[in-house]
């Protein structure tokens, strides 16, 4: 690295502010895929978290342990699993999703869901049961009662969303294996950073890294402002 840090950051900012086609294509792929995976997974995962927290059923502990285990599996292993599923010989091979954004979304859904389920289950477990009972006894329908409890837990639930999104938008292993790092198609921020760094093109890698850094700052400050409004309740 012959260039100084200052010059590199200047180049990186130049790429971002000049709306460099390559850089912004990578950013759009990254956000498009990760947001799609998050949105598809969000509702069922939060509902499963709610069911795990508020109900008792046979196999509940097994599901909880499975979710915890899935949370700790390295993304590259999930990438391998999805690769095998989507490869021509695999059970989902007919879909022809390997090396496509759909395949990446599927992989990121599998990474995202356990985080959302585990964190929303923890949030619902910490909820005051009276919030749920009060909603029901006041005559709220089941979806409305769930919404009322979710509103009470919006801080921890938003934290779960941020944690899940952070995990998928920054993961390399699964995106690299399932997406194949194809320019303008499946190249996202983490795979591009890995590639550009290996090529010695640090300016683009830094530009993309700055996007992730900026995203982390925004998300954490948004969460912080929400946390600031939520005060400890005496009842």
């Amino acid at each position: 690295m012959n260039e100084g840090w200052f010059a590199l950051i200047q180049q990186a900012l130049g790429l971002l502010f000049s709306l460099d086609k390559d850089v912004w294509s990578i950013i759009w792929v990254s956000f498009g895929v990760s947001l799609a995976a998050l949105l598809i997974t969000l509702l069922p995962s939060v509902l499963l978290g709610f069911v795990l927290a508020f109900t008792q059923f046979r196999g509940r502990n097994f599901v909880l342990n499975l979710v915890q285990t899935l949370q700790s599996i390295p993304t590259v292993v999930i990438g391998l699993l999805v690769y095998l599923l989507l490869s021509r010989m695999g059970p989902l091979g007919d879909l022809r999703w390997l090396f496509t954004q759909k395949g990446m979304i599927l992989g990121q859904m599998l990474i995202c869901a356990p985080v959302l389920i585990a964190m929303s289950q923890a949030a619902f477990t910490s909820a005051d049961r009276r919030a749920w009972e009060t909603a029901l006894t006041l005559g709220a329908s089941l979806p409305r009662a769930i919404m009322m409890v979710c509103r009470e837990l919006r801080g921890p639930l938003l934290l779960a969303v941020i944690a899940a999104f952070s995990r998928i938008v920054t993961e390399v292993g699964c995106s690299m294996m399932v997406g194949g790092n194809i320019e303008y198609v499946t190249r996202n921020i983490p795979t591009a950073i890995a590639l550009e760094t290996s090529k010695g093109d640090f300016a683009q890698a830094i530009a993309l890294g700055l996007v992730l850094l900026f995203l982390a700052i925004i998300m954490n400050f948004a969460l912080g402002s929400l946390r600031g409004k939520n005060q400890v309740r005496s009842h």
């Binding site: 029901l136 006041l138 009842h235």
Partner: peptide, 13 residues
């Protein structure tokens, strides 16, 4: 919603 129940320490949203 038929017979409304009020907790001893009511929950307020």
């Amino acid at each position: 919603g038929c017979a409304v129940y009020l907790h001893q320490h009511p929950y307020l949203y």
